[in-house]
Design a protein around this nucleic acid. Structure first.
Lengths: 213, 213
DNA sequence: CTTGACAGTGTAATAATGTTCATATAATAT
DNA sequence: ATATTATATGAACATTATTACACTGTCAAG
């Protein structure tokens, strides 16, 4: 048996990778069956058997979704192993998607100097926004924001705030004794901050989506 | 509801991470049940429900092992998202374990200068050895080796070779027209290289396990 | 002293997932 | 020509995993 992959076998490997990237866990036999447009489990098992024998993947028998991509597998399809990425809703719903740090770090590097970020000292991360509650601040649905954790938050800062209702990006307003989370879209209402019930995760220092355009 | 975690809740989160690290896929309810020493699925579901509500994880309902750790979750337990690591058998069996690149790169950094490795140009990676076929070359069971991909392999190089029988670490010997993979343990026999049936993955440039001692 | 959050038990139903066996066809290599 | 490899099909079966429901107990805060 050749140790090289046929194009179909590679396609299977690539799908496992893609599924893993999108889901955070490997595909089941059924997932693969559907993707490959075959009607029998055995067809899928054949491919998995071959991929395992050739050391592109490793299966954990009997366990649901028990597939790992091995280093050889990652190399074969020219991908890096996965790390995931933060995503939050500007509208207030939950953290949804992920970050691929490999795609993130190269991007950030160019930018870190300008923003005077000390990589080893400052904690920065990227989130992806879902929702339109900040459109008037130039933050659209799907934008990626570079976030920095901070010790103090000043009135006017655009912040990532975590509340019982979810994590959200809003402008922080301190008006005398009152503190608000203020959307930048007239269709949304501001939220009064109840002490102890809101945690600031960091402040927005850059809209990466706007930079890349 | 507070958005902080109790120690037990954190323990669950940590186990999900650990499981993911060891397996490459998330734990099932049963896996968690066993770990937490509870006898009811509902106990586990309670924890998952809370962790999801607090945005440390996200569940994909109805799907086996449908758990993702969210960025907040990683931060809570002070871990990085996972990437995995190569491991191979010196005795000839398959690639088994993984590399955590976060633990690998800091280690390698100290070493790369000495070895004159050009990080952006050279492809290097780490493997973990299983087996004793190279003990007389100072490579023991469990050692981590720094490997570099190369264009040419000279007789005498200790190489990572992939064959139909598996991936293995051996000394490469070219003796006239004959080519061998030579173990460094009299208990093992040398292997004749059949052209086209062996791929060199790289050569051993350092035994990291010996350096750290 | 009641409410709510937290932690737990147990059973049963249902859905999702993986394994095995028995066959088949076309392409490729020897 | 013949054997092997790669790609399929389909059904039966076994196992793993998730969900739902009904209850119990502890503990801290108001």
């Amino acid at each position: 048996m050749s140790i090289k992959l046929t194009s179909k076998q590679r396609k299977v490997l690539e799908f496992i990778y893609t599924f893993l990237e999108n889901s955070g866990f490997p595909p089941s036999i059924s997932d693969l069956k559907e993707e490959l447009n075959v009607s029998s489990n055995q067809s899928v098992l054949n491919f998995l058997y071959i991929l395992e024998k050739k050391e592109y993947i490793k299966r954990e028998g009997g366990q649901a979704r028990g597939i790992k991509i091995l280093p050889l597998g990652y190399r074969e399809i020219g991908k890096n192993p996965l790390i995931k990425m933060a995503g939050i809703s500007a509208g207030g719903s939950y953290v949804e998607s992920f970050v691929n740090a490999f795609s993130f770090f190269p991007l950030a590097e160019k930018v870190l100097e300008n923003e005077k970020i000390n990589e080893s000292k400052d904690r920065v991360f990227v989130i992806q926004v879902a929702g339109d509650s900040m459109i008037n601040a130039g933050i659209d649905d799907g934008d990626s924001l570079l976030i920095k954790e901070s010790k103090e938050y000043k009135s006017g800062d655009i912040v990532i705030a975590r509340t019982d209702a979810g994590t959200t990006v809003k402008r922080f307003i301190a008006d005398g004794g009152k503190r608000y989370l203020q959307p930048e879209n007239p269709a949304y209402e501001k939220m009064i901050i109840i002490p102890g019930e809101v945690q600031f995760q960091g402040k927005v220092i850059l809209n990466l989506s706007k930079i890349n355009k």
